[in-house]
Computed example of a mutant assay.
Amino acid sequence: MLLTQLPEDVLYQVLLYLDAKDLGRLSQVSKSLRDFVNRDAVWKKLAKECLNTGITRNGTDIYPEIPLKERVRIAQNWFHGVCKRSLPLKWKTKLLPWLQLDVDVLYISQAAHIRGYHLDRDSKKLRRSPSEIYSGHQGDVCRFVLSDSHLISAGSDGNILVHSRRGDVSLRLSGHSQEVNCLDSKDGIIISGSRDRTARVWTFSSYSPRATIAMSDRVWSVALSPTLSSFVTGTACCENFFPLRIWDVERSSCLCHLGSDFRRGAGVLDILFESPFQLLTCGYDTFVRLWDLRLSPQRCVMEWEEPHDSTLYCIQTDGNNMIASGSSLYGVVRLWDKRQTKCLQVFQLSRDAVSSPVYCLRLSSSHLYAALASALHSLDFRQNSTSS
């Protein structure tokens, strides 16, 4: 019996045992096999084991419009560090930029403004002129987040601005007495943290905070749980040596703290929920840590150490096997495979005599974007060559 004469469900089970190279060879045998092999269902199991294919740990597909076969090919480049580097944007004044990526628009904060640049559909290059500009802060923008209808920004002027995605400011939230270092927002709830040693809970329906939580230290990072029932704060760890705490959104009460062995000054600079019960953190103590809230809060379940003892400013994840981290020295970006303890790939982006931290990272299926003090860096992993 020929392979093509097998029932489709049987053939599908057979192909599950093949790797990417074998599937590619099989697709060259005949048109009928090529058509079958090119189906996403054939590649899904393999894609879940690769890096940054868009298949999350729970099976959700983030990029359904891109064939899985192509994403698995690009995943090999992520694994081997094969990419083309470019500088889509440069500026003269050193800044602390922040990024957000919304499908085909990349948003970047530069001083008091946030600009949105469309990405070309095929080349993925930034168009020369911004298509959107958001303003209104009297100082630099420290952080901003996106929702379907709003862009919410936090500034060094102590204000939070809720912009309509049409471009106008629909709400100005004043309450912090110093710069707002961090914020997160989902479904009309805003969590903010400030140098004034408070975290605040806001809603779109009021100009005043729904709750104000006094802290012992400056608040460097916050993250709102996908369930909207709790949020996490990361502080400077100077006065209180429990920098990671989980709070109830409704009652604004502390549910627990994470970890028990932080040293003085081990502030937490970035927090990222991967799921309602798993989150990643990084900061001054040079570790990326994975916490599982279903287990004991005293210990993380996994950790990865920056080998050059550099502060980690930011992290991103593909929702499955890959973590990207940005460090404080020489624009170093590292890729980590969660299934390994050592760093998988390293990219030194800063070539200047004065080094720059990586302030923010964003991922798409094919690109990594990194914001440094004076430039936006792009790493394109769609290459066919075997050298970076």
Rank of each mutant, 00 (worst) to 15 (best):
L3H: 11
T4G: 10
L6I: 01
P7G: 03
E8G: 01
V10R: 03
Q13F: 02
L15R: 09
L18F: 06
A20S: 07
K21D: 14
Q28I: 04
L33P: 12
L33I: 05
D35P: 00
R39L: 12
W43S: 08
K48R: 10
N52T: 03
N52G: 10
T53P: 06
T60Q: 12
D61Y: 04
I62N: 05
Y63F: 09
R71I: 01
I74L: 09
C83Y: 15
L106H: 07
L119A: 02
R121C: 02
R121E: 05
R121F: 03
D122T: 11
K125N: 12
Y134L: 01
D140R: 12
R143C: 04
F144Q: 02
S147M: 00
D148P: 00
H150G: 00
I152A: 04
G155W: 05
S170P: 00
G175S: 04
G175V: 02
G175Q: 10
S177G: 05
Q178G: 03
L183F: 07
I189S: 07
S194G: 15
D196P: 13
P209I: 08
I213A: 07
I213T: 08
D217P: 09
V219R: 09
W220I: 01
V222F: 14
S225Q: 10
L228T: 03
G234M: 12
W247I: 04
V249R: 15
C256S: 14
S260Q: 15
G265P: 12
G265D: 14
A266M: 10
G267T: 09
E274G: 11
E274L: 15
P276A: 08
F277V: 12
F287C: 06
R289H: 14
D292Q: 04
L293G: 10
E306W: 05
E306I: 03
S310P: 00
G319F: 02
A324P: 11
S327V: 03
Y330G: 00
W336S: 02
R339M: 02
C343V: 12
V346K: 13
R351P: 00
V354E: 11
S355R: 04
S356V: 03
S356N: 12
C360D: 13
Y369A: 01
A371P: 02
S374Y: 04
S374Q: 13
A375Y: 12
S378R: 09
R382T: 08
T386N: 14
